[in-house]
Every structure is written in structure tokens, then in C-alpha cells.
Design a protein around this nucleic acid. Sequence first.
DNA 1: GTTGAAATTTTATCAGT
DNA 2: ACTGATAAAATTTCAAC
Lengths: 153, 153
Amino acid sequence: MEKLDDIDLKILRILQKNSKKTTKEIAQMLNLTASPVYERIRRLENKGYIKKYVALLDKIQLNRPITAVCMVSLRYHNEGFIEKFESQIKELKEVQECYHMAGKVDFFLKINLQSLDAYHEFVRLKLSKIENIGVLESYFVLKEIYSTTEFFI
Amino acid sequence: MEKLDDIDLKILRILQKNSKKTTKEIAQMLNLTASPVYERIRRLENKGYIKKYVALLDKIQLNRPITAVCMVSLRYHNEGFIEKFESQIKELKEVQECYHMAGKVDFFLKINLQSLDAYHEFVRLKLSKIENIGVLESYFVLKEIYSTTEFFI
DNA sequence: GTTGAAATTTTATCAGT
DNA sequence: ACTGATAAAATTTCAAC
């Protein structure tokens, strides 16, 4: 499979919306039988187009209502320092996302927590222990207007 | 089910990592049989703890390598204006996430695109058409260091 | 709230086109 | 690359405890 055809893209669009759709259901949507759909999905998995299958949980019901975005700038930007920072961040279970950014800010972190108190403790006990952080600016999510793992393909 | 017990939490931890695990496999991990695991999962779905099951796709392989974070402030903050903005944003297929924030910036948007050119077009043709935007600041992801849909429960 | 068995559905394989 | 059939496995239901 060197390139994806239209059927592959349709399968991916379906699965990123709802991975519980059965191959039979997908086959019916595409006017095919189950076998080719099954084989295409296996190939899409094996080639890495599909990375994984996950359940998305409800943050509010599971008592993680606080989402913070943390903008971090490092003091030193040598390669070693950046790698050190990145590996330290990956250790923090509260961090859901970490991006190295272009521009005046070096990193964006997205953090999920139970309470503002927990965020205070997180910064005090964990982030501030990371040596190389220069500037740290925190933003809090008031309301999630829209959020999806899908992207337009 | 008024409260989640330890078994429920373990099931949720497993499923948010890999929703393809079978009830039988989960049952073995928890020293149970398939039936109670099956029924617990149904309840977790019905009560909304599990929102949905999705396939996570590879942005790079699917030619959406550009992720931008866009910080937006509105000109007018009456309730009507905010709702209008939110509903207009939801229409834009390029927007993966939109958060109403506390502080000087009103909204964070996360946007996925094929190229910087596509971002330029997106801002020119779509974002700038939304009337109520005051300030718009764009940041680009150089590298995704870490990103997960899981959160710590 | 669990076990264990049975019924149903889905996944996986494969010969034929 | 797909169809249709078949085998294997998982899901779903349920009686009994």
C-alpha cells in the first residue's frame, strides 16, 4: 500500500469517530463485504496510519475538572538542557501534552488536575523542581467549548 | 453505581490505554471472569464515564503535520457575542480544540493543517471572517514531545 | 456482584474469481 | 482487490449462587 485510496480514507474517517463500528457495518456503509474492509484496517494499523485505539473518559465525572495550559521558557537552550527538560516532563503523570513551540515561548504543557489547589501543589512540588525553567505562565480553562481527537482527512 | 470502586478504576485505566483489550483479557488481569467485567464496562458507558471509543490516527503520515495554537481575544464580551463566536468556531473543521480561558486571553484554539500555507489561508479566509475577534496570536508546534488522551485516575 | 454455560455476533482465514 | 464461505474467538445473555 503505497498510497491511500478513497476507501481507506473513508474507513479512517469512520474509525476516528467511532472505533466500535464493526467491519460488517463499515462494509455496508461502503457497499463492500467484510473481508476487504477487514484487510484494509489491518494494513492501516500495520503501516501506522492507525496508531492506537482508546476509550475517551469524562474528566468531570472522574473528578479531573481543572485543565491548565502552562507556557514555559527555558533558561538555557543547549541540546542537552532541552532533552533533559523533555524527559523530566514526560515523567509527570499530570501532563497530558507537551509541545516544543516556535517563538518566544519554548513549550506548551496541558495539565489535568482535580483542583486549583492540586495545580498549586503541582507547580510548587514538581514543575519548580525542574532546574532549567525560566519563565512559567499559567492559563486555566474556564470551559471546554469543543474538543476532538479527530482531524480532517 | 453511585461510586466507582477499585475494579472500575482499573478497567478505565486499561481501556483508556487500549480499548481493544478484550473483556476476557481484562478479566484475567483483575482475577475475574468475563461477565462482571462486561457488565461493569456497560455501566461505565451508560453512566457516561466512558464517552466514546476512537482510533487515533497519525497526523504526519496523513499529511497534517502542522499544529498551531491560536490565542484569541474578543472585542465584545456580551453573552450573545461569545456564543456566536463559539458556534462559528465549531463549524471550522480545522479546529480540533477550543477552550474558553480565564485571564487576558479569551480562547485557545488548536488547529491541524497540511502546511503553513494552509494556515495562512485558514486565517485569511476563515478566522478573519469571524467578526468579533480582537487580538489573534499564533504559535506553531515545532515538535510534539508528548501527547496522550489518557489522564491520571 | 459473581460464576459458568449457552447463544449470538464478530473477527479472521481462505479458496475462488 | 473483492466475494462468499467457513473456522475461531469475542461478545452478550442468563440461570444459579
